[in-house]
Structures are given as C-alpha cells and as structure tokens.
C-alpha cells in the first residue's frame, strides 16, 4: 500500500472498520512512514475533540419530554378512534345504500309488466278532440287559419267558460 491509499483509509483504520488484511497492510505501512503516522495522530486528536462532553439539558427536561409525548399520545389516540368510527360509519352507510339499490333492482326485475291493449280506430277518433284543444292552446297564431272571431271564442272557452252554456260554435270548434 502506498501513502495515497493509506491516507484514504486512515479514519476507517482508526475506527477499526476495515477487514483484517487491510488493517495489517496499513499497520505495516505506518511502521515505515512518519508522514502517515502524523496524519493518523491528527485524526485521533480531532476524534477526541469531537467526543468532548455536550452541555446538559435544562432541568426538568425529562419530565417535560414525557409530558409532551403523553399529550401527543392522547391526541393521537383520540384521532385514531375518531378515524375508526368515521370509517365504520361510512362503511355502514355505503352498505345500507347498496342494499337499497339491490332491493330496488330485484323488485323491478320481478314485477310482471302490464298487458298492452290493442288500439281500435274508434278510440283514436274519440281522442281527437283533446288533441285539437292542445293544438289551440299551443298555436293560437293567426297563420293557423282562424279568424278574429274564432280566436275570441277560443279564448272564452279556454278562460273557463262553461262549454255547455257558451256559444255552440265555440264548442263545435273545440271539438273539431
């Protein structure tokens, strides 16, 4: 080993963090190299300075620390239980909604459909007047071909005048 390699491994050598063969190689180099020995000594001093005792904490720090952790525990516990209950509640609500949707689906699926009656031409004719009324309400425009008198009659009819007591023409028009 040369000085360059040894100098890179001196801290690890000082901390005994090298393999056995590396330790032996460095030890033999240190035996013949005063420069590397001096470097090792300076690293030892630096390590020693670092290990100087730190000032102690303020009195009562241990108790204050325990108190802080205890209060953090209480808060954390309350939060954990709150989270547990809120999650449980959400799950329960989701289950109830899901069950409701499923029951509705089953109900709709198993309800028999109403039979469709065939439509006769006479019933279609009977339904015509009402369609005519709707047409009058929706399109009272002059381009529908009705005259001013006819429009007046329509309005009277639609304003709630008794169709039986009103003019016959209005009823006739409405039933057209």
């Amino acid at each position: 080993m040369n000085c360059f390699k040894v100098s890179h491994h001196l801290s690890a050598y000082l901390d005994s963090e090298l393999t056995g063969s590396e330790m032996l190689a460095i030890r033999s180099h240190l035996g013949i190299c005063p420069h590397c020995r001096a470097e090792l000594e300076s690293l030892k001093i630096t390590k020693r300075v670092c290990a100087v005792e730190v000032p102690s904490a303020t009195p009562g720090f241990e108790e204050r620390l325990s108190e802080v952790v205890r209060s953090a525990r209480q808060n954390g516990q309350a939060q954990a239980w709150q989270r547990y209950f809120s999650t449980s509640l959400s799950v329960a609500v989701a289950c109830v909604i899901g069950l409701g949707v499923f029951t509705s689906y089953l109900f709709i699926k198993h309800t028999p459909a109403a039979p469709i009656k065939p439509v006769s031409p006479s019933s279609v004719a009977q339904s015509q007047p009402s369609l005519s009324k709707m047409h009058l309400v929706d399109n009272p425009a002059p381009n529908s071909g009705s005259t001013g008198q006819e429009v007046q009659q329509e309005r009277e009819y639609l304003d709630g005048a008794d169709p039986l007591s009103g003019p016959a023409s209005a009823i006739a028009y409405a039933d057209r």
Partner: peptide
C-alpha cells in the same frame, strides 16, 4: 467511510486555523 474521513480532515483544518491553542492542548 469517505464522509467521515473528509469530515474529520475538514474539522482538523478548521481547528488548526481558528483554535490552534486548543488543538495543541489536546495534542
């Protein structure tokens, strides 16, 4: 390993330049 070695060398250089008396005392 590299960080510790470089850190110690930096610290040594700093102590030698700013507090040589302290370094000598420990020496």
């Amino acid at each position: 390993r590299s960080r510790i070695h470089r850190g110690r060398k930096h610290l040594k250089a700093h102590l030698l330049s700013t507090a040589p008396a302290l370094y000598e005392r420990y020496c």
